[in-house]
């Protein structure tokens, strides 16, 4: 009798805790997802409903009108192409250089190793605003200002320390014994790297590339300062270009924002498992 009473109390407690877990989870998801919902639903409204006062919570009619306008009336496709070009090339460049560097930072035997690792960590924390002004002058002197190659080079200041730091953490998880046994078997260092290290490091290099790509895709300040021609702008700068003195073109901004998120969402699906399993704070920056 007494036992069943205690059991009922326990069950009730369990139910309550389950309920509160789901309640707060739903709240958390709503909190995180609402801006995305609002962005997508705004982008699908027609131009009259878009500016309706008060705003409609669910679009009454769904139309791609604003998307069509965005493609027809603005440089959106050019900006998209520019962003892809700049981020992909600068990512490949920095991950290549960083793979070499990170490998030697974890395996190399030189005295300054620790000091260099700390230096890399410090540069990883450098804010773009600190380097923007001198880089502007550097680009102006080398006549690389207002050009995509110039922008790619400056993106290295963000992506290189980032991928170096991430890959270093990744190489540390690969046991050195494997390489040693390879060398005992008579393989050269280069063979060991090609046959043993790289295949094992490949998933990490790929994930690092995606993280780096996302960081570069999100970049704003450099693209704002170093590019002035409309047809050389990146997505983020193009979108803020709709905030004009004469008014804000929200009807361009909403569909544009949606489209700028899509590639990132695809990458995100791939890398999100690394985030929980993973490398913790070393893997993300922002």
């Amino acid at each position: 009798m007494k036992n069943s009473k205690r059991n009922a109390k326990y069950k009730f407690k369990k139910l309550l805790s389950n309920f509160s877990t789901y309640f707060f989870s739903v709240l958390l998801v709503l909190f995180c997802a609402f801006p995305f919902y609002w962005m997508i639903s705004s982008s699908l409204k027609n131009s009259v409903e878009f500016f309706a006062v008060p705003p409609t919570f669910f679009p009454k009619s769904i139309t791609l009108e604003q998307y069509v306008k965005l493609f027809k009336e603005t440089f959106f496709t050019t900006w998209f192409r520019n962003t892809v070009l700049v981020t992909v090339i600068s990512t490949i460049l920095s991950v290549f250089v960083a793979t070499l560097g990170a490998y030697s930072l974890t395996r190399g035997r030189f005295r300054a190793k620790e000091a260099i690792a700390n230096t890399v960590l410090l540069t990883y924390m450098f804010p773009p605003i600190l380097m923007a002004l001198p880089l502007y002058l550097l680009l102006a002197r080398t006549r690389l200002i207002n050009s995509l190659p110039g922008l790619m080079i400056t993106y290295l200041t963000i992506s290189l320390p980032y991928s170096l730091w991430m890959l270093r953490a990744f190489f540390q998880t690969i046991p050195y014994e494997l390489e040693e046994s390879g060398m005992i078997d008579g393989a050269t260092r280069m063979q060991v790297i090609r046959k043993i290290v790289l295949p094992m490091a490949l998933p990490g290099i790929l994930a690092t590339s995606l993280f780096t790509l996302i960081t570069s895709w999100n970049e704003y300040l450099y693209a704002l300062l170093f590019i002035s021609s409309e047809e050389l702008k990146t997505l983020s700068v193009g979108l803020t270009g709709f905030l004009t003195k004469h008014g804000i073109r929200w009807d361009y901004i909403m569909p544009g924002s949606v489209l700028s998120l899509i590639p990132i969402f695809i990458f995100f699906l791939y890398i999100q498992r690394y985030l929980i399993e993973g490398w913790g704070g070393g893997a993300i920056k922002g």
Binding site: V53, S236, L239
Partner: peptide, 27 residues
């Protein structure tokens, strides 16, 4: 879902927030 805000292109989503904060048409 909770990781999404962090990996979203910042400027795009800040603009959405600015639109949500709008005094007349803001949600």
């Amino acid at each position: 879902f909770t990781l999404l805000p962090f990996f979203t292109p910042g400027v795009s989503i800040y603009l959405v927030w600015r639109w949500m904060y709008n005094d007349i048409s803001g949600i």
